[in-house]
Simulated assay, not measured.
Amino acid sequence: MLPLVLMSKKLALFVDFKLLEFGAPVALGGFLVAAMILTPEALAALDAARANKLQRAVNICLGSALATIGLTVPAVLIAAHFVALPIELGLGGAEIVLLALTIGISILTFVGTRTNALQGVVHLAAFMTYVFLIFDS
């Protein structure tokens, strides 16, 4: 975990520089670094979905989310505490609504015994809404 966090810190310098150069929103930097870290799990989930193993794809994504929430966020908070950097985890109004919507969709999806492609499309639509909200500032 430590090499990944250190690599992300070094990469974030280059990403932040380019984002400032292009005038892109700062939140896009965090999204790009997170996307780089989550790419292996995403590719495994896509392979499972292509093989019509949707339950396996969902399980891979859930494991990835658990690792991100359960390991990455606490590691970043601890590292920021030791180097005395401020961390802001606040959400605006639109992000709170999107978070509540995502939680609701997830409950509906994961309470059932099986998943289907339509549920995946709904999750992708919520994700794309998040991506579009990054640029709404």
Rank of each mutant, 00 (worst) to 15 (best):
S8V: 11
K9M: 09
K9S: 09
K10L: 15
K10V: 15
L11F: 07
L11K: 05
L13T: 11
L13Q: 12
L13R: 08
F14H: 14
F14I: 13
V15K: 01
D16I: 03
D16F: 02
K18Y: 15
L20D: 14
F22V: 10
G23S: 07
P25R: 01
G29D: 03
G30C: 04
M36E: 08
L38K: 13
P40V: 04
A42I: 15
L46W: 05
A49S: 06
R50H: 13
A51Q: 09
A51F: 03
K53N: 14
K53A: 13
L54I: 12
L54Y: 01
Q55I: 15
R56C: 06
R56Q: 09
A57Y: 00
I60M: 00
I60G: 00
L62A: 07
G63Y: 01
G63A: 07
S64C: 11
S64N: 06
T68F: 14
T68D: 09
T68L: 13
L71R: 06
T72G: 05
T72R: 03
V73P: 07
P74F: 02
V76T: 06
L77H: 05
L77E: 12
I78A: 08
A79L: 11
A80K: 03
V83R: 05
A84L: 15
L85E: 11
P86E: 04
P86Q: 05
I87Y: 03
L91S: 09
L91P: 05
V97W: 09
L98Y: 02
T102G: 12
